[in-house]
Nucleic acid binder design. Structure first.
Lengths: 360, 360
DNA sequence: TCCACCTATGACATCGGTGTCATGACATCG
DNA sequence: CGATGTCATGACACCGATGTCATAGGTGGA
């Protein structure tokens, strides 16, 4: 690989002059500049980042640690790739600044993380972003103070800057929309009890019911994800069966995610129920491959992965420039409800609401 | 950030001795070694890759260019993330060698690719891998001869080493299995006519029919992806309708991908047909979130993304070590058929085959 | 006309590691 | 006992950029 000395020799100038042409940080005579550029092209010269970095002590690198690229053996998400939208958001935002994103994959094996961090530190990354595959509490190994870090889709208990989804509000907004559409008996099939999102979303569900003056009925809330993935369909079937046999059965099923909603479509249809004519279904995530492709398309809430990625990258950039907020707090990012054809508007109980529906 | 000189001073040795401790490339007395290690820990010293790289001229970096992380506005794949499995396979394989993978995202905007390549060259990557979002013909900007490059999920016309999926064989194997299960009237809903996979897979389809002595009936092959994504459902509905109204209607629908199969499930059920009791469905890709979650689970062929990623990385490593084959040819990677509950075994026409089914 | 000043350019040191070679202290062997 | 070899360590140069400072040549104002 040609060096700046080769170029200098070919152009019959000093290396420093070549450097000036490259960086434009000092005036260079036109004739000289042309000669240098010609030599650069002729030799196919590309400056070495390593040498530049040594001198300037600026790597222009941002490190991203994720398990998203590797397989998650998570019962909840056998192929949970959508969190890669997070990476997309981060990439977009970091790319705009001219910095380069280095991505390392932990394979969700936390014991590998320290090694990845070490590699990044060897490359003198200017900052780190850690992305979790789903909303969770984490504890990262220590990182030197002068390397800022932002957690994404996760948080810790020592106040590291973090960006997480607004699970409470997402579920709240969805349920509020269902109520506005005339639904009163709203079933909720939750994800596993031990994940962070489940509790937050149930809060949002209860809150929305409370605001509408609808009593919370525990019989309408069941976990749809107990035990191993193999038994999942059976668990769902049982839960749905139990709720449909209530004296006041639900008119809509809210699912823990779009994948679960996909299963629920199949189960309901096997029971001879048409979606949405006989019963409505809503999901969570706005996992587009499912939500848009399902027939009929699925009403759901967006888990705002891309927006979270953008936000995380912005926070890191703020930390670089020292604008970083001192509170070192957690950003909560909400996502919109996507209203599609899997939920019917139910005939509302009084005339004023009927009018509303007509306008809609 | 502490340097090797700081460590040397703290441990009262020369920088070179610290280097020896770090790399273990020459014997160091135990007492000295302990002192050096203590100093390293005390100072939180992490060696600078840039400095190391300058001297050794080995970056330990591999560059990966992909559009997979960014949004593809492809009618065929509104959220086609599964090709990220490719990245996973590459990451795994490269990681084993101790090299670091740098990932850059072209956002599928080919005009950005030269810039990304330049950035990688500045970092002195030892090799490049280009990943396309779907099987296609590409033309990359030139790369210096001393930087090996491997194309993945794509190929070019100048013989660059490439790894592509075996679309022909995949479809062939699936159709052969369907025939073995007793199906004779096999409908095929294809992807867009202009993509590489469509032609290859149709060849596989015809080949399998031919081997079984079944005549090819053009009425059973229809494109399921014409026009814009919005009209896709309508197009599918029409194509399915036409085929079901044939005097000899199909007993199974082969779909261009699992997403299409998901739509087909909905359409068939809307027509009152149960899958698989009334009609069978098969997909392509083994996009697990869909194939495993659908009810009933979907019979499909794996598009072997992970295996292709592994293979691509291996080929690059071979090029590093000079073992690279001179033919600079294209590797074709096949994937297995996943037989799930969306296809029924049909009563075979004679007794000997009936026996076979019983054993199964 | 001479000095001050600006422009264009080059010499040299430096960043943080590592390769090469030299050196001093012992151990081994004839 | 001296020659030879091995071990542990250090001095120094070098990788390829760029920051600092110096300098040659030209220009303008007093």
């Amino acid at each position: 690989m040609a060096t700046i000395y080769d170029v200098a020799k070919a152009a019959k100038v000093s290396p420093k002059t070549v450097s000036r042409v490259l960086n434009g940080d000092a005036p260079v005579g036109k004739k000289t500049r042309d000669a240098v550029n010609a030599a650069i092209t002729a030799l196919g010269y590309v400056p070495s980042n390593a040498a530049r970095m040594m001198r300037s002590n600026k790597s222009g690198l941002v490190g991203l640690i994720t398990g998203a690229i590797s397989d998650t053996i998570e019962p909840a998400q056998p192929a949970g790739l959508p969190e890669l939208l997070l990476v997309r958001g981060i990439q977009q935002t970091i790319g705009l600044t001219g910095k380069t994103l280095m991505i390392a994959d932990s394979g969700n094996r936390s014991e590998r993380v320290p090694d990845l961090i070490k590699t990044f530190l060897e490359h003198r990354v200017e900052g780190l972003i850690y992305v979790a595959p789903y909303h969770q509490n984490v504890r990262l190994p220590p990182v030197p103070d002068d390397t800022p870090i932002v957690l994404t889709n996760c948080f810790d208990e020592i106040g590291t800057p973090a960006v997480i989804p607004d699970d409470r509000r997402g579920q709240h907004d969805l349920v509020a929309r269902l109520i506005a559409a005339g639904h009163q008996r709203i079933a909720y099939l939750t994800l596993r009890e031990d994940i962070v999102a489940t509790g937050l979303r149930r809060n949002g569900y209860r809150e929305a019911l409370g605001e509408a003056g609808i009593a919370y009925d525990p019989a309408l809330v069941q976990c749809g994800e107990i035990g191993s993935p193999e038994t999942e369909t059976q668990v769902l079937w049982t839960a749905i069966d139990r709720m449909l046999n209530l004296s006041q059965p639900p008119t809509v099923f809210c699912c823990g995610n779009d994948r679960q909603a996909l299963k629920v479509y199949g189960i309901l249809r096997s029971r001879g129920l048409a979606v949405p004519d006989d019963i409505s279904v809503a999901g969570y995530d706005n996992y587009r491959v499912i939500a848009e492709t399902l027939y009929p398309p699925l009403t759901t809430v967006e888990l705002p992965y891309t927006a979270m990625g953008v936000r995380a990258a912005q926070r890191l950039l703020e930390l670089f420039s020292g604008e970083g907020r001192n509170d070192a707090g957690t950003d909560v990012v909400g996502g919109p409800v996507y209203w599609r054809q899997s939920v019917t508007e139910r005939r509302p109980p009084n005339v004023s609401q009927l009018k509303l529906v007509r306008e809609d």
